[in-house]
Design a protein around this nucleic acid. Sequence first.
DNA 1: GTGAAAGCGCTAACAA
DNA 2: TTGTTAGCGCTTTCAC
Lengths: 318, 318
Amino acid sequence: MTVSRVLRNRGDVSEPTRLKVLKVAKELGYVPNKIAGALASQRVNLVGVIIPSLSNMVFPEVMTGISEVLDDTALQPVFGVTNYKPEREEKVLYEMLSWRPSGVIIAGLEHSDASRAMLKAADIPVVEIMDTDGDPIDAVVGISHRRAGREIAHEIVQSGYKKIAFLGTKMPLDHRARKRFEGFTEVLAKAGLEVADQEFYSGGSSLSKGREMTEAILKRSPDLDFIYYSNDMIGAGGLLYCLDAGIPVPKQIGLAGFNGVELLDGLPRQLATMDACRAVVGRTAAKIIADRVSGVSEKSGEKIVLTPQLSLGQTLRR
Amino acid sequence: MTVSRVLRNRGDVSEPTRLKVLKVAKELGYVPNKIAGALASQRVNLVGVIIPSLSNMVFPEVMTGISEVLDDTALQPVFGVTNYKPEREEKVLYEMLSWRPSGVIIAGLEHSDASRAMLKAADIPVVEIMDTDGDPIDAVVGISHRRAGREIAHEIVQSGYKKIAFLGTKMPLDHRARKRFEGFTEVLAKAGLEVADQEFYSGGSSLSKGREMTEAILKRSPDLDFIYYSNDMIGAGGLLYCLDAGIPVPKQIGLAGFNGVELLDGLPRQLATMDACRAVVGRTAAKIIADRVSGVSEKSGEKIVLTPQLSLGQTLRR
DNA sequence: GTGAAAGCGCTAACAA
DNA sequence: TTGTTAGCGCTTTCAC
């Protein structure tokens, strides 16, 4: 009926009728049923956002970027969390796609065959975010983690560090950490160096985890002169440990993290890190979806490679 | 048809037929359309979760608790973020309810009239979380922030601190911080004390914000002997500032935060804080919804008041 | 155990 | 400018 037209502001309704409908709707506390609407119109103003975790401060920022952009459109983000498990990702994706969203933003380029198939079959804009090293399904926005690993390694090697360790999350779960590690070891190898020691952990990252692990690795390999952490949180923990233990940073040992978590600015010493451009990634991905949905953009398969900013801080001697 | 029965495991289908359907469905890459399903069955296995922010580490943990419980059910959480703005909350809520979710979990007890009306009219289980000081719509799970403020104030007063300051988020936005502050000043008043100085900020909480603000307040009121922060993040920043500045903690000045963010364990000194039971709150709220949806529970209006655990840490002299 | 038919609450297309 | 009609893709009910 006309009611439908009014509620959707689809023109061609006389002002008096419009007002009358609006009034009655308000009186009745009427909330339109989007389910029926979506079914009839074959359109759903939802954008599925699938991320591995919420606990590490990096994805919340991406989500903020996404929300910022989508707030100016009719689209609404819907979030799903996979906990870095492919089978969870598959399930979350399945559930999401069964609601026929207008687009999907999903972290990473590594997905199960089934997930990729679903994404392709869905025939909607798909933006894979955070990582650009791999074979995208459709569009990608992110940084090259392999390059990030290489760059920090260059910096470390040039600064003259020799006994370099890596401390990070268990790789099979976290592809981006793995790629950074690969780029890292690659450059070390070119410089004739090997990773002197390494340690991997599972579970969340926290200051105390960083402390413990740093203590452990330094006990085992007291002659290390650099530790590269897979994220800022454990890096910061390591830094605090060293300061407490009276180990001069960066004189005796240099440290670097990853992510550029500004939450941690304000540590006794600024940790060397590399910004993953989280907010920009979120905004850009959302923009791609919004543009395609609104028909502004005809393109597909956009590949946007951002350049992470290296920030040397005060934990890397020059 | 029969297909529908197979896909939903609703009995009374012969095994051969079942397998055949399953096989064809897989070959076709068939993903059922939940929109149509929901419309026909008048049931939607979604639980709307509405929270003010993602950037402060407290809500991610709540969400994790919710997911944990809901993973064992047919229900799926859908998250919405309000940025502490009532008008955003209203919009997010409206959008959510228009999808006719099976339940809603929403942070806080303060909502606009329109939001309350929508929630009541939706006729679904509603659980308000994090706070129990107020008038609930249906069920509530959380702690009393007023009591939390009182308890820490008791502790501070008993420890003999006299010149006590408060440092926190701008109140109108954050009702829970406000209530803690109220409980706090109440106990101070009973002890014949007043808040010696106070400072409020807007925007996110970070270590550096805590540093800056602590420096500022101590410049202004050098004779302070205690600072109560509205959250652990800025409290930690304050702690780091004091240590850097050579101010003995807790000898010259005591510090306390709020939340019990374990992410921050591992600071040079453990900050006195109070746990807001975030994970438990999430799990309990999800359980209430799940039980009601499945018909296990007939109750409504459950009120679950958790007792926050005070942890004295090493920044409060005894 | 299986199929057929009605209809969930909307939108789209068309008629008035 | 407004009303009418036919589905959208499922679930439900009932007949077979």
